[in-house]
Amino acid sequence: KVSEIQESAKRIQNMIISAHLNKDLEREIIEAYEKLCEIKKEKNTKVAIRSSATAEDLPSASFAGMQDTYLYVSTPESVIEHVKKCWASLYTPRAIVYRNQMNIPHRNVYMAVVVQAMVRSKAAGVMFSVNPITGNENEIVIEGTWGLGEAVVSGRVIPDHFVIDKNTKKVLKKQIAEKDIRMDWDPSTGTVKELPVFPQFRKRPSLSTAEIGVLVDYALKIEKHYGIFMDIEWAIDKYEGFPEKIKIVQARAETVWNVKKGKLQTPESAV
């Protein structure tokens, strides 16, 4: 029953969030965060805290977005709190139901948490090293918008759409959307929220030709490293120079064409 799953999920999540971390682990996390602050030369530097579950990105099972991501987290105490929240998100009702549907045993799922420096995104989005619509493995598809990539991943905006030839690196197709809103950090409220895009930027491409070129190079390298089609999240830092400002924040196995073309097995056969 839905009500039973919701109640069980709530109890499990509360147990995880209220639990005290092992002192050695807590110290290691805080020391690593403080070292990052030193590298960034900023006290209480802001970080993104992301899930990395063992079952999150199994081929043919798209767990993307089911576990929580927390953006613009700062202070050691807040980092510890949100690491636990990220672990607890492994047991949201949605994640539990999906694992049941995909025949993935709950006892076989583990959660790692990634803490990474926050990219102060001018633009962000997703990229596929295979055309996710047609399955053409000679094409790379990039989608992007202004602000944080959450707007693209959550479907809140229609993103710019670029199709690139993997061999020649030429842009084959370009569709520039009218981007009225962006997800971004609001200093006045201290939260990530939906904000308007300035009129002069609404019909402007979120990526330049040079930025597309760097992203394509990243896609080729990442695909070569893993040997499969990849689903990649990227962001461009508004304060850094080119090409250092272009960041890859996450990469996972693409979940449709890898299975259809026999590059990876299905979750059912992997369990």
Rank of each mutant, 00 (worst) to 15 (best):
K1T: 12
S3H: 13
S8V: 02
S8H: 04
S8A: 13
K10L: 11
I12V: 15
N14L: 00
N14W: 02
I16S: 07
S18E: 15
L21A: 08
L21H: 05
N22L: 08
D24K: 14
L25T: 12
L25G: 01
E31N: 11
E34V: 12
L36I: 12
C37K: 06
I39A: 08
K41R: 14
K41L: 09
E42I: 01
K43G: 01
K46N: 00
I49A: 05
I49V: 14
R50W: 15
S51W: 13
A53G: 15
A55D: 14
P59E: 11
S62N: 15
S62T: 05
G65D: 11
G65M: 10
M66W: 14
Q67K: 14
T69F: 14
T69W: 15
T69V: 12
T69L: 11
Y70W: 09
Y72G: 01
E77D: 15
E77V: 00
I80P: 00
H82N: 12
H82R: 10
V83P: 00
K85A: 02
K85H: 05
S89Q: 08
S89E: 03
Y91P: 01
R94D: 10
I96P: 06
I96S: 08
V97C: 04
Y98C: 06
M102I: 02
N103E: 09
A112W: 03
A112K: 11
A117L: 14
M118K: 01
M118L: 12
V119R: 10
A123I: 01
F128T: 08
N131W: 01
N136I: 05
N136K: 11
E139A: 07
V141F: 01
G144Y: 04
W146D: 03
L148A: 02
L148M: 15
G149L: 13
G149D: 07
S154F: 05
V157S: 07
I158Y: 13
I158M: 10
I158A: 12
P159C: 09
D160T: 03
D160F: 09
H161Y: 15
H161G: 06
K166I: 12
K169D: 14
K169R: 13
K170E: 15
V171A: 04
K174A: 12
Q175A: 09
I176P: 07
K179V: 08
K179Y: 07
K179F: 05
I181T: 13
I181M: 14
R182W: 04
M183I: 14
D184H: 08
S188N: 11
T189K: 10
T189R: 06
G190A: 11
V192Q: 02
V192H: 00
K193C: 15
K193H: 01
E194M: 06
P196I: 02
F198N: 05
P199E: 12
P199N: 02
P199W: 03
F201C: 00
R202V: 05
P205L: 10
S206W: 00
G213F: 09
L215F: 13
V216C: 09
Y218T: 03
Y218V: 02
L220G: 04
I222G: 05
E223H: 10
H225T: 13
I228Q: 08
I228L: 10
I232F: 10
E233L: 11
W234R: 10
W234C: 04
I236D: 01
G241H: 02
K245A: 14
K245D: 04
I246C: 05
R252K: 06
T255M: 11
W257Y: 15
N258G: 11
K260R: 15
K261E: 15
K261Q: 13
G262F: 09
T266L: 14
P267Y: 02
